[in-house]
Design a protein around this nucleic acid. Structure first.
Lengths: 221, 221
DNA sequence: AGCGTTTCTGCATCGAGTGCAAGTTTGCAT
DNA sequence: ATGCAAACTTGCACTCGATGCAGAAACGCT
């Protein structure tokens, strides 16, 4: 029983319902994609599984691909906050690396069921990869703008864009490489003692951070 | 008249014909995209303009987007050659810098009519942007693999990928930033003296050279 | 309960892309 | 030249993603 006077910022029934079916769509899609693959799953199937009309799907997501990136701006937000909260002695590269740490810690999306599916699809379905890259480029431009206004005297627009590109490019490259090798190893390890299959995402993060720091080293002077 | 005994490596009639219609498709598409836009141009129109059946289009290009990146692997080839031809005293960074210089000199794609159209579409059509990033990422991973096998003791896969990503990301970021300002200026200048609208409103090659210089400056120490 | 505003949904339609089964052209050996 | 096999081209039918439209249903508010 909710306290009667709490200024409950509870969204209206409409919005709650909308959020519920939104999640139903994501869950249904994750399940179907995982079971039959991306191309083999039609929008009509997803909609049916979430019990809405096919046409209605497109009022929730502009496209089938958008379904895969429900929180696309979370990482960008964190990075922009990192820039805003900078200490006086931090250079641009320091800020970006700190943002990367924060993302690694707080990103809840990495454990969602959709995330697991997405990483698999990223390697195999061109459309998924293309969409991911597009999202990346959008956030990259935001970061570039924020950087150049935060360091007006050290970073002009073009240099800021270069740095932002170097950063996101380095991270994306490292993640992709890691993902590739990880999944290859997994295939190799197949058939041998199929024990509890311990995952080690923690030193993955350390690896990514190290590699990014090395790649960006020339940018800190 | 060709010397009768020259071991002319002339491709067969079949291949020449194929190459001809291939270019006809690219030219027709460049013209149509430039005139009516990307989404407003159908594959059927392009095929008709090149005088082939609609169905046949897809034996030349796997998709409408592929039409926009006809030489997508040229840059990767040059870079891989640069890695193969490295001198003993060259580090990974030196090689990449040299490769990019070579690309700047020898890349003919930058002056093709398609290039001008592509840069315009890159800013406005999501599908084009996504495809471009995907191409970039693919070549990047190839370069990373080659780098880490060329320097097995200095670069693991992940670090090599981060380095390659940082490089291409920096250049790409700088290019788009510079392109944005260039194209915005151009729009501003619109309405005044609407002269013949010079078909090559800016020098791609110079622009890319400038962006590359800015983006890679930190690595050149 | 009743009314205005969203939201949902079916229907019709368009464009990208694919499989198939012809027809057509090219390369090559006789 | 002639004929034949392989490669290439093409139309047809079809699937799927995506959009516009208009009526039906659900919601919020009085």
């Amino acid at each position: 029983m909710p306290s009667p006077l709490s200024p409950a910022p509870q969204p209206s029934l409409r919005e709650r319902k909308r959020e519920r079916t939104r999640h139903a769509l994501i869950d249904a899609a994750a399940e179907l994609f995982g079971r039959q693959g991306y191309d083999e799953t039609t929008v009509a199937e997803i909609a049916a599984a979430a019990e809405i009309g096919t046409r209605t799907f497109f009022t929730y997501f502009a496209s089938k691909e958008d379904l895969l990136f429900p929180e696309s701006d979370a990482r960008a937000r964190i990075t922009l906050e990192a820039i805003a909260d900078r200490r006086a002695d931090e250079g641009p590269v320091d800020i970006l690396l700190r943002a990367l740490d924060t993302v690694a810690e707080t990103d809840t999306d990495m454990v969602s069921p959709m995330a697991a599916v997405r990483t698999r699809l990223f390697r195999t379905v061109p459309a998924v990869r293309g969409k991911a890259m597009q999202v990346q480029m959008d956030t990259q431009q935001e970061i570039a703008r924020a950087l150049s206004t935060a360091f007006p005297d050290r970073l002009d627009r073009v240099t800021a864009a270069a740095l932002a590109g170097a950063f996101t490019g380095a991270v994306a490259g490292a993640v992709t490489a890691l993902l590739d090798t990880a999944l290859l190893d997994e295939e190799d390890a197949e058939g041998k003692a199929d024990g509890p299959r311990a995952e080690q995402p923690f030193d993955h993060r350390a690896l990514i951070r190290e590699a990014t720091a090395v790649a960006l080293a020339p940018w800190r002077r």
